[in-house]
Design a protein around this nucleic acid. Sequence first.
DNA 1: GAAAAACTGTGTATGACGCTAACATACTGT
DNA 2: ACAGTATGTTAGCGTCATACACAGTTTTTC
Lengths: 310, 310
Amino acid sequence: MTEREDLELPRGIALAWGVAANPQRGPKREMSVEQIVEAAVEIADAEGLGAVSMAAVAARLGYTPMSLYRYVTAKDDLILLMQEEATGLPSEAARTAGDWRETLTALYREQVQLYLQHPWVLEVPITGSPVTPNSAAWMDAGLAALDGTPLTHDERLSVLLLVTGAARWAGIILAGYARRERSSGEAPDEITQNEDSLYRALITEDAYPHLRAAIDAGVFLDESDPFTFGLERSLDGVQAYMDRVAEGRRPERLPWMGLDDADIATDKRYREARKAVREAEKALRAARRLERQVAREARERAAAAVRKAE
Amino acid sequence: MTEREDLELPRGIALAWGVAANPQRGPKREMSVEQIVEAAVEIADAEGLGAVSMAAVAARLGYTPMSLYRYVTAKDDLILLMQEEATGLPSEAARTAGDWRETLTALYREQVQLYLQHPWVLEVPITGSPVTPNSAAWMDAGLAALDGTPLTHDERLSVLLLVTGAARWAGIILAGYARRERSSGEAPDEITQNEDSLYRALITEDAYPHLRAAIDAGVFLDESDPFTFGLERSLDGVQAYMDRVAEGRRPERLPWMGLDDADIATDKRYREARKAVREAEKALRAARRLERQVAREARERAAAAVRKAE
DNA sequence: GAAAAACTGTGTATGACGCTAACATACTGT
DNA sequence: ACAGTATGTTAGCGTCATACACAGTTTTTC
């Protein structure tokens, strides 16, 4: 029915690569996987991933919920296909934007815009690298950009991972604000203002001196783009690394996040001590709070007594 | 009952700051918010955020589901409190690890470990910066690390955002693998191997030349840490930026991701053209697939005919 | 010290969800 | 023509978050 490799392929991935055998025997199919995925994506775009229920998708197409299971084995598969559909292919314009840096920047921007158009993609849980046609195309485009550089294949993939992560991070934050914008009906300026005043009200100088200083400097009202800044710094670093490598001064590659010295955090006694500190800090906050509250009540009581006396 | 600022505070945040008025009138409370949150975190750590239902939390404490609503206004609030509990405070060791770079690296590592201990935190949807005591403490620690540097407050926050994003990205990927490890029962090596052979089977040289080359170079079997590599490059870039600024050569800050020239992607005609390309590529893949399949069926038919003839 | 008010944990009910199983109906290769 | 097989539908299960009414318990008020 299908191909050799199919034996080991997870169902969802098999569907994504389009190696699902279309049956020949029964009645004609009235829908198609593409239609279903398209409808699901439209719902997700408009109302979020949470609004994508089998019933909702079916209703949008004019069928009963259960009919979808003739095309998609489970909701998880549908979501994988939605992801693939939304991911699409990198544009020709981005793929050929210029040198490696310009190309990666263009791919970054396109990914961020993608996350803004389909914010629900960020909600889909990740399990390993998705081995699907479109995500492979994105990887290929990124690797193509780094083709002429003195980096090894490993290093190129690491750089790609860096850029992809930056795009996703920007997407997460920006999509978060966009969602809040839609749900609360606040304008972007309002959100910024409200957040700033929330910080101003809650962050005290004694508990958070540096954060308070930053707030007073107006960081939460700042209008420059922190994500572009971050990407620029990262790519600066990559460029410097390339220069160093080109000079034959390749640093040795670092191993996985050392548990040798970072292991302090997993040491039992240390963790207990930390917990104690945490609880002490919590108690201090509670005590301060109580103090203020009691003072306030005392004031009120006094005021009430005066009123009564009159 | 509570304090002034409380009027504007979202409920969940009010609870996180502990400004929830404990009632005095009724029967003694048998539970506490802390107990509930703790139980919920334990469930989430062990079985994921999906396993945290009000019923499950209540059952773990020996109560009925509805009783929880006397302590927590809604499940969303519970999740915010869980997040705050899991986030905790940055350790003293990390906060005082050395110069800005060492400190930020230590904070990065601690955050990644945190995500590995509480992977469900990554599933909690983000809406704006969380204005809670513990997350404020992390920000404060990060800003403290950058205190002696020539950066402006804005730039410091951007650097922090960069490091936080890197940690989250590493957490997302690593937690994804950890989850798969647990759910499928594969060993880490096995997962790497399986993924590699999946790539090898599906990524053809004609469709994905650069990715295929990378695969052949063994990138998916590589054992160095791409996240540490990325962080190092990023911090290299930040260091270079500091040096430049210290010399008085501060570049002008870039504005928000320009929709001026990146807008090609939102141009209607362009998007339609892209979609057409996409569909053409899809059709090509389908045609190739069909070709192979038909060839295979023909072979089988021939074999069957031979068998019948015998 | 009694009545009122406030609050506790519980039982019941509702509507939505993903998905299994049993169904009559429609098409196709032999 | 008929067996085999696929279609979309109906009914129903177990789970979820949460609204509401309830009897019992503690504190406040008179």
